[in-house]
């Protein structure tokens, strides 16, 4: 069985908001170390990977590995019924087809109980190879959100270039183009500043609609890390106290 008590429902609400438009159904894989989710979007272009550590919960118990197959739309609806600062308890019995959620109000005696149907999901888990990335960029997550939103007004794709100069985001639209250069900030470290580590010049093109989607995770962390190597998927990573959310995005190649 699983019994997990989260100090604030907000984390789960934000996580669901970050993945619900990318993925319809997914397995939350629970084991004694915590809860993991890995899922690809329908077109197999993007993959999201979530980790919630057992230590990030106020109380956590999972006797044996338990996959909780969830429709993310339904889960989002049930979580909307929780206030951000409610204590959130999730429970599932072994082989059960129901996930139960309890929301305990912080400042009153209100206790709300919900149940959600679980489903069997046949999902392929991909082996993601360990990669030594050629470039690693750390920046305020709000800045990344602004860049991808701004450029998505102009075109469908963004070219990301990391060089000695800094990191440049370039969009060539049909009617307009734009580029944004971020230099490493010498006097400011993350979360406010930008740090760039580079072993090799990197130049990759990605679809902006996915990046705009990933940027929703800025509610979970003030900092985002971009890891890039030529001709491999981009890794966009947000770390927070209880775990992380990571996105992988396959690049676009020449015309």
């Amino acid at each position: 069985m699983l019994e997990a008590r989260l100090a604030e429902a907000a984390i789960l609400k934000r996580l669901l908001d970050s993945i619900k438009e990318l993925v319809t159904d997914a397995n939350f894989e629970c084991n004694e170390e915590g809860i993991n989710l890995q899922a690809m979007d329908n077109s197999h272009v993007a993959l999201v990977s979530v980790k919630l550590s057992a230590s990030g919960f106020k109380k956590y118990r999972c006797d044996r590995p338990l996959p909780l197959g969830v429709n993310l739309g339904s889960f989002t609806k049930v979580l909307k019924c929780a206030k951000d600062d409610d204590v959130c308890i999730i429970k599932a019995a072994d082989d059960a087809d129901i996930l139960s959620l309890t929301y305990e109000a912080r400042n009153s005696d209100r206790i709300a109980e919900y149940e959600m149907k679980l489903m069997d999901i046949d999902a392929d888990t991909l082996n993601i190879p360990d990669t030594d990335y050629d470039a690693r960029v750390s920046m305020p997550s709000a800045e990344f959100t602004r860049i991808v939103r701004d450029l998505s007004q102009l075109g469908e794709s963004v070219r990301i270039e990391v060089s000695k100069e800094g990191v440049r985001f370039i969009s060539d639209g049909e009617a307009a183009n734009g580029n944004i250069l971020l230099r490493q900030t010498d006097d400011d470290a993350p979360p406010e500043g930008v740090t760039i580590e580079m072993n090799q010049h990197v130049n990759l093109t990605f679809s902006l609609k996915y990046l705009v989607n990933f940027a929703k995770s800025s509610t979970l962390s003030n900092v985002v890390q971009l890891m890039l190597s030529n001709d491999v998927p981009l890794l966009v990573s947000y770390d927070f106290n209880q775990g992380h959310i990571r996105y992988y995005l396959a690049p676009k190649i020449g015309d």
Binding site: A46, L47, D124, N127, P129, Y248, A250, K252, D255
Partner: peptide, 14 residues
């Protein structure tokens, strides 16, 4: 602008 790759090319199915 460019052809979209899929992840299957880069990541292995177990």
């Amino acid at each position: 602008m460019g052809r979209q790759q899929t992840l299957g090319k880069f990541f292995q199915m177990p």
